[in-house]
Amino acid sequence: MVNEIKPKAQGSNAARRQFLADTARMACGVGLLGLGLGLYARHATALPPAAIRPPGALPETEFSAACIRCGLCVRDCPYDILLLAKPEEPMSTGTPYFVARQAPCEMCEDIPCVKACPTNALDHALTDIAKSRMGLAVLVDQETCLNFLGLRCDICYRVCPVIDKAITLDPQTNVRTGKHTLFIPVVHSDACTGCGKCEKACPTEIAAIKVFPLYIAKGQLSAHYRLGWVEKEKAGGSLVAPDVEHQYNLPEGMRYEQGKGLSSAPPGEPPPVPGHLPDVPSLPKAFQGGKL
């Protein structure tokens, strides 16, 4: 009996060993493959600067998870601006993008690309194309921007579909000539959709204004930052100290006005006296005037 059982036990033991070895081999081999794929995907899924996603695209990591890579957005784009990423391109293979300098988004009012998307990669909640944020225009080169050089090129400003909101022309003194005005194109992120028309239209050899994905183009203040003038407006008055007219330490008989400069004070006007700081009820007691 013992002699009969022993070989059988050995046999099943060997089979078990074989099974475990096979399983371990398979798990390790495939695991290694998975690791390689994961690392490759990690490197290859960051959106390159020149690639702009269609309107309503989710943030990049979610987008590459939600996009089914079917190309229906490409098909339903009436201007054929969208491309699907090829394997050699440094982004998720098969996902849609456009290159603004080649063909910008025409910002169709009915947003057919979003409607065509069978997943939520292009957010179906986007119904107003002006609210899309495909990217953000940045005037990257002040040295070659014609307006910065003193010309009235203004093309980016003129072609902008959100004219006077996304790009404004802010007058500045041309200190080089001393007598002209520079009309500086300034992009406003609260209105710019990132359609890329400005980049496409920029007449210089290489565009001085470019559209970048938001993660490249947009900075962000630290969470604890407050803009004093905004807070002041919200509170309806100064929060840190009461508004007191600034006292200039000037020679007697002279006065200084913001924007007007130095002048002699009209006779009879009493010299300004540093006033008592009134209480500001909205402030904590410790910060109220007089107790500091």
């Binding site: 495939v30 994961g38 995907a41 998870a65 890579r69 293979t93």
Partner: peptide, 24 residues
């Protein structure tokens, strides 16, 4: 092997949150 690869693609997709297999 293909069942292991199938399992791996789904695990890697879940872990990375991106469609890993679709890269290749």
């Amino acid at each position: 092997t293909r069942y292991w690869i199938l399992g791996m693609t789904l695990v890697a997709t879940a872990l990375s949150g991106t469609l890993v297999w679709e890269m290749v």
